[in-house]
């Protein structure tokens, strides 16, 4: 019980991190500088750890330059960019949102710089019973992403693929166990790590934040769907030169190492080792 409470308190920190995502929209509208002494990076919430590390490298390599981040849900960032938010670089957790921004001429020449693999996280109490996708229909409570957000879409695709292996009614039996459809992946993780839900789908990169409070189950590669993360310079960026330099750093071997430490896979075709 005391152990449970300590874990609950640790999870509180995680929850607060999840909460900072919707609150993020209040920050971030930077004023363009006359010369390039700052860089504004809009990045998907899941990139927080990796990009913060890369940002420290970037500021060391460019003395006098300050990198300002806005981490939020990809959809939220896209809406802000569509409404003219002043950003130089956009890193998306989802191809679709990037494609729509390119179609609207708000970004150009996106490049995939990382991939992120959905995994199953299981609450410690249930770790003895839930060893993989086959055990999900017998779980007491599942929490997944809402189908409107990327992790929710991937979860649906994974369940569809799994249905081919575990039987046609598999998806319906799993969905009967769903008690909440969360609006961002950190909230899925928070509820599993608090023990409120027995299992949920999150990205591998998210688990780093809760390694000692959940158990991780890898999804077999043939059933998994991998998220591709594209990055692009924003059209009309106030700091186009630094923006280009940032994209190059993210694509470099140093950038790849930081991303890998945070749990990301390398872009397809290059493997996880650059």
């Amino acid at each position: 019980m005391t152990r449970g409470r300590r874990r609950a308190l640790q999870a509180l920190v995680l929850c607060l991190a999840a909460l900072s995502v919707p609150a993020g929209c209040e920050r971030g509208q930077a004023t363009p500088a006359p010369h390039e002494d700052g860089l504004v990076v809009f990045a998907a919430a899941s990139l927080r750890d990796a990009f913060t590390a890369i940002g420290a490298d970037f500021e060391r390599a460019h003395p006098g330059v300050t990198v300002t981040f806005q981490f939020a849900g990809t959809q939220e960032l896209r809406t802000q960019l569509e409404h003219g938010a002043a950003a130089d670089v956009f890193a998306s957790a989802d191809q679709r949102h990037m494609d729509e921004l390119v179609a609207a001429s708000r970004a150009s020449e996106p490049v995939v710089f990382a991939r992120n693999e959905p995994v199953l996280v299981v609450a410690l109490e249930a770790a003895g019973r839930i060893h993989g996708l086959a055990d999900l229909p017998s779980a007491a409570r599942l929490v997944v992403g809402s189908p409107e957000v990327p992790i929710g879409r991937y979860t649906q695709q994974i369940l569809e693929r799994a249905a081919a292996r575990f039987g046609a009614d598999y998806r319906a039996r799993v969905e009967a166990r769903i008690v909440s459809r969360e609006l961002n992946v950190r909230q899925v993780l928070a509820k599993v790590s608090l023990g409120e839900a027995e299992a949920g789908f999150v990205y591998r990169s998210d688990v780093r934040a809760a390694e000692d409070r959940v158990s991780l189950v890898t999804i077999p590669a043939e059933l998994d769907v991998v998220a591709e993360y594209p990055i692009a310079v924003v059209t009309g960026a106030a700091h186009p030169v630094l923006a280009r330099a940032w994209v190059d750093l993210v694509l470099s071997a140093d950038g790849a190492r930081a991303l890998e430490r945070a749990g990301f896979l390398g872009p397809a075709g290059r493997g996880s080792e650059p």
Binding site: C15, L19, P22, G73, Q75, V143, S146, E148, V149, I178, V179, S180, R181, E182, L183, Q187, A190, K191
Partner: peptide, 27 residues
Amino acid sequence: GATLMFAGNLEGRTQTLPLAIYTALES
């Protein structure tokens, strides 16, 4: 906020109007 955190977001059971608005905002 408190509802999303404590009650979750499930249509018909815990998805109130503000949660439905936020969910719809995503799509």
